[in-house]
Nucleic acid binder design. Structure first.
Length: 302
DNA sequence: GGTGCCCTGTGG
DNA sequence: CCACAGGGCACC
């Protein structure tokens, strides 16, 4: 599910709800989702720690703690974070629950409003404590705890390439890192160690906007094409982050699975539909084992 | 480089 | 029943 725009959306919604909260305890229903350290150690090291903020790097999320420790998390395909009042109905496949203190219950006012209007449940029933819950149907998502001063050799974050919004992501950066590759440009865009955060949806959207055929070998791109790519990558991702904007109320009501930017996708999920630009029928092919939708008119091979 | 695999659910 | 799903990795 989530690529950079969705992960950034999760960060923007969740951070204000957990910032300055203390982790009282953690419930782990599926120990295998804790990649490092062992689940029991993960829990004992985090109990009593206070959350200072949230960061995103590529498709990774980080929950920063005042101690300097940091919880990292990758949602993979179906992972989902939700902040709810303790006692709120639990999603199926909830694998980890962070029990947080909530002296400042005003932070959860929207939850109480939502309950009062939709469920007619007395808000007071949920006044004690909130929970940060991780659910993941396919169970691919993973947590790591990296302690202050500890070298992170576990998550893979150290191998990530540039953030798409990094100003050093230029035509020459792309050409230097990809310009000699025989690999298709579609596969290159998915390489997290070159650019971090692009997945299967947004690689298609980016290639459509740049008017590049997904199977073009990277070593065949012209300087002008590298330039357009360097311009369009941050532009498209920023556009879709904005289209994803959601209030905490709506996020909770959508159980964190409401991706509001899907109506704005131009090619992904639109195989056999007419191209929104030229009207030709959009085509689905498989590139590097991933499905890829493109317009044969706009993205002709040469 | 391709392929399979980790999982569950959905749609044809 | 099978194919496929927005990720990433190990393995020929």
């Amino acid at each position: 599910m989530p690529e950079l725009p969705e992960v950034e959306t999760v960060r923007r919604v969740i951070e204000p709800q957990i910032k300055q909260k203390k982790i009282l305890s953690i419930t782990v229903n599926r120990p295998e989702v804790i990649a490092h350290p062992a689940a029991h150690e993960f829990c004992s090291l985090l109990a009593g720690q206070r959350i200072s903020g949230m960061i995103r790097r590529g498709k990774f999320l980080g929950i920063k703690l005042e101690s300097g420790d940091c919880i990292f998390l990758h949602l993979r395909m179906t992972g989902c974070l939700l902040v709810v009042p303790a006692g709120y109905p639990q999603e199926k496949h909830t694998h980890v629950i962070f029990h947080l203190d909530a002296d400042d219950s005003a932070v959860c006012a929207h939850v109480q409003d939502s309950l009062a209007t939709t469920n007619k449940t007395p808000a007071a029933r949920f006044a004690r404590g909130i929970e940060l819950r991780f659910s993941d149907m396919r169970r691919f998502g993973r947590f790591w705890l990296i302690r202050r001063g500890e070298t992170d050799t576990y998550t893979g974050i150290d191998r990530l390439g540039l953030e798409p919004f990094d100003h050093t992501l230029t035509a020459s950066y792309l050409r230097e890192h990809l310009g000699m590759r025989k690999k298709t440009i579609k596969e290159c865009l998915l390489e997290q160690n070159v650019i971090a955060g692009i997945g299967n949806i947004y690689s298609d959207e980016i290639l459509f906007t740049v008017k590049l055929h997904p199977t073009r070998p990277a070593n065949s791109l012209t300087e002008e094409e590298w330039t357009r790519l360097a311009l369009i990558i941050p532009e498209r991702l920023h556009y879709f982050i904005e289209k994803n904007a959601i209030t905490p109320q709506d996020y909770l009501e959508g159980r964190g699975k409401d991706y509001r930017n899907t109506p704005f996708l131009q090619v992904y999920g639109h195989a056999s539909d007419p191209c929104p630009v030229c009207g030709q029928t959009l085509v689905r092919i498989v590139v590097g084992g991933r499905s890829s939708v493109y317009c044969p008119g706009c993205q002709g091979r040469e």
